[in-house]
Design a protein around this nucleic acid. Structure first.
Lengths: 236, 236
DNA sequence: CAATCCAGTTGATCTGCCTCAATTGCAGCA
DNA sequence: TGCTGCAATTGAGGCAGATCAACTGGATTG
């Protein structure tokens, strides 16, 4: 029952939550599995794609590269997440590079099967719409961060967002500091200096990829300087 | 036949191209018209929305604002375009401000009607998916511009993109230079200086909001420095 | 037709972050 | 166990673009 296994993997991806089981089985029949080793390329900028991907396990880096060698990481895709949906609905070349940062198992959904399922199950269409909408929100947040926030604010906001997902104030960077720096739109040197500075101020403690957030309130104040803190002088 | 008029307006919006006429009529029955004067607010960041918008005529600025007063314009929405789709499919507060830069007529599509139509017409769902996908591509391009390109490259690429839409090398800025500067993620001072510099080099000619692109090839070379030009020295 | 306001320009200065360069530490491997 | 290579750190210096400030010109208004 190999098909049943694939169906289970697909059923666990949040974007397919609302899809009726028989339809999932049908989708699974048309889906392919693809394994990519650490360091391997999933797809390259400029290629025409007619499929999108779901991630069973592993880690994939989606990034843009400048000719100068500079790299901007847009997203790190983890298990259960999908990417490349937008390529199915626009006849445009893929705008980003996708590279596996760990041994990875992908599920490949061909455009044809996707379109057929849209025809049959409005909940699948809604799942896609929801997925794309979330992606769009994230990109808006990304633009906001990279144009309106300082490097320090981006670093702190990122650490905070990692903690929100996990337990209390203990986070682990999902990739090397060099990759995270590219994710945050700073050089690795600047990233290193900022982490050190935050550590010196007692706000965080860094041990390789593990970081303890020692003072969430003050960190939040750095990331979102909405109110000028509580205790600064108020008189003229 | 007021309903018929609204239906016609809707039918002219590209995202509804593939929708069957009876379904459009049904959608029109549930849509509202909203007029906003120049300077008026369509919606504010933080509000919960349960609708999206189409633009019959006018101009709407979608922007982010930093507490420091800084503003980043994400998009200028023109006639026939839609915005806010993503808010219908995610229960999240609206991330941006929308302000009319000219007297504007909007068509408001309530979430309920949208969801009903998705149920009935897969082509409508595809129209939405296509629209969101394009938006996502544009945002990727936006991130690329703001993180990987210099201010000069962004300005030139923007002018070039305006020309692509219109005729030859004659473009008109769709808003004040201050707004365009915020669109490009630079201060108005820097924008002014860059335009002057390009003009001094004979690459463009500026007359208020009208700009003539005098040397498209060299401008393209500035925007996309893929090859280091043709004539630079090649010997060591 | 002054008064006001806002868009735009221009100059002088400042600075956050990048660039370049050198060094350390650790992991994989012969 | 030493070699090789990549991740990370740290220092010194430079620059693109922001900031601050002053001024111009056109449009609106009482």
């Amino acid at each position: 029952m190999a098909t049943g296994l694939l169906e289970g993997v697909i059923a666990n991806m949040p974007m397919f939550r609302q899809v009726a089981r028989p339809n999932l089985a049908e989708l699974a029949r048309h889906a392919r599995v693809q394994h990519v080793r650490r360091g391997g390329t999933v797809c390259r900028r400029g290629e025409m794609m007619n499929c999108f991907f779901g991630l069973a396990y592993g880690l994939v880096k989606l990034s843009l590269r400048a000719d100068g060698g500079d790299e901007k990481v847009l997203r790190l895709v983890g298990p259960g997440e999908t990417f490349g949906e937008a390529l199915v609905f626009r006849e445009r070349p893929n705008p980003l590079d996708a590279v596996a940062l760990a041994d990875t198992m992908l599920v490949v959904f061909p455009a044809q099967a996707v379109n057929a399922l849209i025809e049959r199950d409005p909940n699948f269409a809604r799942g896609l719409l929801s997925s794309l909408s979330e992606r769009l929100h994230n990109m808006v947040a990304e633009v906001e961060a990279s144009t309106l926030l300082s490097a320090r604010q981006r670093v702190v906001a990122y650490l905070d967002s990692l903690a929100a997902n996990g337990a209390a104030g203990r986070v682990r960077l999902p990739a090397t500091k060099t990759v995270i720096a590219a994710r945050l739109g700073v050089t690795k040197e600047t990233f290193s200096r900022l982490l050190r500075e935050l550590a010196n101020q007692g706000l965080i403690a860094v041990d390789k990829r593990d970081i303890v957030l020692r003072d969430r309130p003050r960190l939040a104040e750095i990331a979102h300087p909405s109110a000028p803190a509580a205790l600064s002088e108020r008189r003229a």
